[in-house]
């Protein structure tokens, strides 16, 4: 695989992981964010987004969760 393509493919995922971890940190606390970051390596982007939205919806409700996910997508 072309290393440049590889790094381009990894970059959006890396950005997604960073933003997802920020959201988890802000909403669930630092302890949870550390565990979350450690567990994300093998996850696909779609999986990361859907599980994050599910957890956020449970904690802060659907409206707030959608806002946070929208902000995350804008920041990637």
């Amino acid at each position: 695989m072309d290393p440049i393509s590889s790094s381009e493919e990894n970059s959006p995922k890396k950005s997604l992981i960073e933003e997802a971890c920020k959201i988890v940190y802000l909403n669930f606390g630092s302890g949870t964010a550390q565990l979350y970051r450690a567990g994300l390596k093998d996850k696909a982007e779609k999986e990361i987004l859907s599980s994050l939205e599910e957890s956020l919806t449970e904690l802060v409700g659907p409206d707030k969760a959608q806002l946070e996910i929208k902000d995350l997508k804008n920041n990637i």
């Binding site: 449970e58 904690l59 802060v60 409700g61 659907p62 409206d63 707030k64």
Partner: peptide
Amino acid sequence: VDYRQGKLF
């Protein structure tokens, strides 16, 4: 109000 239906409400 934005937290409604969530645990933090």
